[in-house]
Simulated scan of single mutants.
Amino acid sequence: MTQPPPAILVLEDGRVFHGAAYGAEGETFGEMVFNTGMTGYQETLTDPSYARQIVAMTAPHIGNTGVNDDDPESSRIHVAGYVVREPARVASSWRATGSLGSALRAQGVVGIAIPGTRALTRHLRDKGAMRAGIFSGDAARAAERDLLDRVLASPGMEGADLAAGVTTAEPYVVPAIGEKKYTVAAVDLGIKSMTPHRMAERGCEVHVLPATATADDILALRPDGVFFSNGPGDPAAADDQVAALRGVLDAGVPFFGICFGNQIFGRALGLGTYKLRFGHRGLNQPVQDRATGKVDVSAHNHGFAVDAPADGPFDTPYGRAEVSHVNLNDGCVEGLRLLDRPAFSVQYHPEAAAGPHDATGLFARFCEIMEGSD
């Protein structure tokens, strides 16, 4: 077997990891983050929320089951780069239509295989997420100092407005499965395909709108409920989406948001957001519902969070609100709820195609508040 060419991963603080090229050869830049999921690498790669990020997988073997046509969460791979420890040499699954390495090459995704993914993860946990670059083939032959200069010249994530680059170009409709019960307007900030499917399973006809949709665009559908999706970038840069959501809240239409949608909801309520040290990315985050005490193990992909008072209800332009869910690892706000209007959000992913599925009941709750608003 032909040996892959050498590759180098360079972090903005000067830390360097040497390895072998995986996927496409060349160079790429992005925010260096890690994902702790042991399954679902295809869902991770195709999640639009990973735009402009280089993702390191902490699970040691990646690519064992290849890729298929059923599991992608969008039409293409969105990660800026990919870091693994041991890429599979063959794909072994009856569902596989190809290998992961071939898919990365076909879509021009530059990756690297390094023996030190554990060291990389520990470094990021200590120093925080940071800019990075992967260089392979001819690009890896430059001096490390020159490569570091190129990393330092690349854009960071703070202040990045990325939803426009991953949203749908045109509105489309996901029909209800079975009897139609509700019309939902879903604003695509980087939506995953499983999300409208979960709503369709519950009788929702989902009208997916571009991230540029205004409140007038949304309300023109006369929806029973409005949904804001996950997505990439800094919520502090999403002023247009905040304005659109405020128009929805002014109209009193039931609202549900997840991940980036939770952050937009927080801003619409007058709260701030901040960047987490290294973020939550994986399938194993324990989140507690403060009203019931129930703990869900949940899927996450976010580097920002809402700054909200956790010690009781607080006032907003739309009445009283409260923090509904908290992360039991670090106390991070994981959900918000209005007490006087039908609106709530969570910071995690209840659709979770790759699992876990503890939180899928949140879609039923959305349907309940739409039913109750009639």
Rank of each mutant, 00 (worst) to 15 (best):
T46S: 15
Q263L: 05
G98A: 06
G303V: 00
A359I: 10
V67P: 00
Q53G: 04
V346H: 06
I258E: 03
A88M: 09
G37I: 02
D374M: 10
S93L: 08
R290C: 12
R365P: 03
C367I: 04
T292N: 12
V206E: 02
D330K: 07
A164F: 05
R150S: 12
H280N: 12
F366L: 12
A211L: 03
D340N: 12
G319K: 03
S154F: 06
G190Y: 02
T167N: 06
G111S: 03
A352H: 07
V166E: 00
A176Y: 00
S102I: 03
R141Q: 15
E170L: 12
G19S: 08
T195P: 04
D289T: 08
G231D: 02
W94I: 11
V326I: 15
A7G: 15
I177R: 14
W94Q: 14
G23Y: 01
E179F: 05
D234Y: 08
E334F: 11
G133T: 06
Y172A: 07
A160Y: 03
E170C: 02
R222F: 02
T65A: 12
H300G: 00
I54H: 08
K192N: 13
N301R: 04
A153L: 11
R365W: 10
L120H: 10
D146Y: 07
A80H: 03
R277D: 13
A186N: 02
Y82S: 02
P210L: 10
S102R: 14
D70V: 14
V84K: 01
G303D: 00
V16E: 10
V10T: 12
A56D: 08
R89W: 04
G266A: 09
Q263A: 03
F260E: 00
A176I: 05
A139H: 06
A20T: 12
P223Y: 03
G30A: 11
G335S: 13
L148P: 02
D307C: 07
G165P: 00
A163E: 05
V110L: 03
D161E: 13
P223L: 05
Y172G: 03
V84P: 02
H325C: 04
G23M: 06
G19A: 10
Y348K: 05
F278K: 03
V90E: 14
G247W: 01
S92L: 14
V306C: 07
V297D: 01
A185E: 04
I134P: 01
L221R: 15
P356Y: 05
S92T: 11
M157P: 01
Y22G: 00
M130L: 11
R105H: 11
A139M: 12
G252Q: 09
Y274S: 14
V55H: 04
Y82P: 01
F17P: 00
Q263R: 03
V10M: 14
G319N: 06
G261C: 05
R281P: 00
R202A: 02
Y348C: 01
L362V: 13
F17C: 04
A299H: 03
S345R: 05
L104V: 09
A321H: 07
D216Q: 13
G231K: 01
N262W: 00
A56N: 14
A310M: 14
E73N: 13
V33E: 07
E158C: 07
T65Q: 15
A88T: 04
Y50V: 14
V55R: 01
P254M: 04
R131I: 04
C259H: 02
G257Q: 05
A321D: 11
L45S: 07
A343F: 05
A186C: 11
P175R: 10
T58Q: 09
V248P: 01
R76Q: 13
A308F: 06
A213Q: 06
